[in-house]
Design a protein around this nucleic acid. Structure first.
Length: 432
RNA sequence: GUGGAUAUAGCUCAGUUGGUGGUAGCGCCAGGUUGUGGCCCUGGAGGUCGUGGGUUCGAGUCCCACUAUUCACCCCA
């Protein structure tokens, strides 16, 4: 590729079949969210940097080194949103949504930006679908939120995705556990891998995540976080688990599951495809009972998740679960020679006015070439206009799949009537 | 931020021990007699071989730098 005008690394153009796949997935998402009583919210592409510093957490990698920040003309720092929860929480407080019927149930499908090195499953600009369930401390809220993601994946037919859940407790429990864990690890500190040594100082919980065999061995004897949870957190987590059981949603309790954003409390969860790489996690979320308050709102419990649409689409494409792409042109109007091109264009316009997707030649091609073009468009019918047709007022209509040819009056209404099946059958075949 | 790989037509790619830029497929355009698509055949358009240096009589090929892309780590969705 020698052209210097390319889109920026980690961003991509989407069109044709690829765009169709994305839009189809977004439709499924919107339908599912409607069924679960979530309404859509759009927040701005950028916010005051402070929103993310406060919301996501000053010590997270996202805030420390992955944000696209810039200044407005007044010198105020702005940032392209690296995730959506902080912005939604900010909007909740700003618009006094606590006066809305509780709980407030919102979902979003939005682009996010993180300045990371792109690789498969990770883009600089990526798209997240997520839901936020705000106002309820009930474990049923946890289960409801998880059920949205679960049901969506079921509807899409995604195979081999596992739900992992854990509880990292309230801040008090977490603090207690953090101390116990640090105490345990410190005796083996020298045996940790270099990144874990870093993690130890920054966020010791993340050492639990390490896939390095030697670290895993050290960690295998580490105290469990569930043992550090107080009565309230333990009770909540048990209730979440039984609520999931009641919904018939299978899960694995993963004691080592921790999440990288500061705002999580109590329940955390991830949806992980079978055999996924480290970029494979398709969705992740958890409770954030203190976030609304940190934006100046009343203390308000909430829980949500984010799902990577790009990762989801990739899995669906791989598993061949997205209906085929059909550009959707129904009729091609061909003309024999340039003298009839005007009539063809006029008929095409009349058909379009009737809501029939129609095309005609715009390249000055021969009739034969026009037919080839019609074939490539995958149109269902071709109408052919020549000298005779104009004289007689009757056109030939060719069924492109059977090759059969019939006649009709040169009139958009009559032509449309001959094609009763014309508004159906698009995008119905899975595969390809 | 760290490490590896790659860079030839719109796409997927051949290109020998350095010897005239080209293979195959796809795609695009035009033809294959006079008004009709899919299959087949023929022809055509399109590339400063990522950029800049170096070695050499001669570099797509070897060396260096840069850039871009990509994969992995880190982190996350």
């Amino acid at each position: 590729m020698s052209n210097k005008y390319q889109c920026y690394k980690g961003t991509e153009d989407r069109f044709g079949a690829k765009l169709h796949n994305w839009q189809w997935v977004e439709e499924q998402i919107r339908q599912t969210c409607r069924d679960f009583g979530f309404s859509e919210i759009k927040t701005p592409t950028f916010e005051y940097t402070e929103v993310f510093k406060r919301g996501v957490g000053d010590t997270t990698d996202i805030v420390q080194k992955e944000m696209f920040s810039f200044e407005d003309r007044g010198g105020r720092s702005l940032t392209l949103k690296p995730e959506l929860t902080a912005g939604v929480a900010r909007a909740y407080v700003q618009h006094g949504m606590r006066q809305m019927p509780m709980p407030v149930k919102l979902f979003y499908i939005e682009p996010c930006f993180r300045a990371e090195r792109p690789q498969s499953g990770r883009d600089i600009e990526f798209f997240q679908f997520g839901v936020e369930h705000i106002g309820s401390a009930s474990p049923f809220a946890d289960a409801e939120v998880i059920s949205v993601a679960w049901e969506l994946l079921q509807r899409l037919g995604v195979k081999d995705v596992k739900l992992h859940i854990n509880s990292i407790g309230c801040p008090d429990c977490r603090e207690r556990y953090n101390e116990a864990l640090k105490l345990f690890i410190s005796s083996n500190f020298e045996k940790l891998c270099p990144t874990c040594k870093e993690r130890f100082g920054r966020n010791a919980l993340r050492v639990l995540d390490c896939k390095n065999p030697s670290c895993a061995e050290i960690i295998s004897g580490a105290p469990l976080i569930s043992k550090s949870l107080d009565e309230e957190c333990t009770g909540h987590f048990n209730s979440v688990k039984s609520a999931l059981n009641a919904l018939g949603i299978p899960f694995t309790h993963d004691e080592r599951l921790v999440r990288g954003l500061d705002y999580y409390t109590k329940t955390v969860f991830e949806f992980i495809p079978e055999g996924a790489s480290s970029q494979g996690t398709i969705a992740g979320g958890g409770r954030y009972d203190n976030l609304i308050e940190s934006f100046g709102g009343e203390p308000t419990c909430a829980i949500g998740f984010g799902m990577g649409i790009g990762r989801l689409v990739a899995i669906l494409e791989k598993q061949n679960l997205i209906p085929g792409y059909n550009p959707g042109t129904d009729i091609f109007v061909g003309s024999y020679c340039p003298e009839q091109a005007a009539a063809a264009a006029a008929l095409t316009y009349e058909l379009r006015k009737l809501g029939v997707s129609a095309e005609c030649d715009a390249m000055g091609r021969s009739l034969k070439a026009q037919m080839k073009y019609a074939d490539k468009l995958n149109v269902r019918y071709s109408v052919i206009i020549g000298e005779d047709e104009i004289r007689s007022g009757k056109v030939k209509i060719k069924n492109m799949s059977t090759g059969e040819q019939t006649e009709a009056a040169l009139n958009a209404q009559d032509i449309k009537k001959l094609m009763p099946d014309i508004d159906t059958g698009r995008c119905e075949t899975a595969g390809k």
